[in-house]
């Protein structure tokens, strides 16, 4: 049983789906341990390669798990990995959201809603800070972040493509003159 790659993917990735609290970075260490050292799906060097690739793929960085799935079992492996990665956490979120929805309008619900709002705000700002740190924390990055936020404050319906493209062009120019 232990040799079946699809079953192995589910056994490894489904718990990580629930364990990935506060972002995908929480799953890198256990995923590397399981994929490289325990199950020998990929070598350490391959894992690092796949990690680098995963950073260039849109969407959640935990899609690294699907890249590993593709590597060991092709398209089916990638699909099974996707389900194992995102179904458990989505199901939990759905259950909480359904309870949330059912009690709409009750006093405790409104209190919870208002109590969660400052926490959400604090977490968003903390997220900005940690993303800034991860992205290098240099002046260029900071300038693009502020420029993008400012542009959006100025025109609320500005299309995100414009902000992403603006950032890409700024970095491209900086890379050229460097």
């Amino acid at each position: 049983m232990r040799d079946d790659p699809l079953l192995g993917l589910i056994v490894v990735l489904a718990p990580l789906s629930i364990a990935s609290i506060g972002g995908a970075s929480a799953i890198y260490a256990p995923l590397q341990y399981e994929a490289v050292e325990v199950r020998h799906w990929v070598t350490g060097a391959q894992f690092l390669d796949l990690f680098a690739i995963s950073r260039f793929i849109p969407g959640p960085s935990s899609i690294l798990g699907a890249l590993i799935g593709f590597n060991i079992a092709g398209l089916l492996g990638a699909l099974v990995a996707m389900v194992a990665l995102y179904l458990p956490s989505s199901a939990l979120c759905y259950a909480v959201g359904a309870v949330w929805d059912r009690h709409r309008g009750k006093p405790w619900h409104t209190a919870l809603e208002q109590g969660l709002a400052p926490i959400a705000a604090g977490l968003i700002m903390a997220g900005v800070l940690s993303l800034y740190r991860i992205s290098g924390g240099d002046v260029l990055t900071g300038t693009v972040i502020l420029g993008s936020a400012g542009a959006l404050a100025w025109k609320r319906k500005l299309h995100p493509f414009i902000l992403l493209a603006g950032g890409a062009i700024a970095f491209e120019l900086a890379w050229l003159v460097r």
Binding site: M125, V144, A149, G167
Partner: peptide, 18 residues
């Protein structure tokens, strides 16, 4: 470089939302 720049633009959106 382009990807890093696009990511910075996305962080700016996050700041605006914050």
């Amino acid at each position: 470089a382009a990807m890093a720049g696009a990511a910075a633009g996305a962080i700016g959106m996050m700041l605006n939302m914050g």
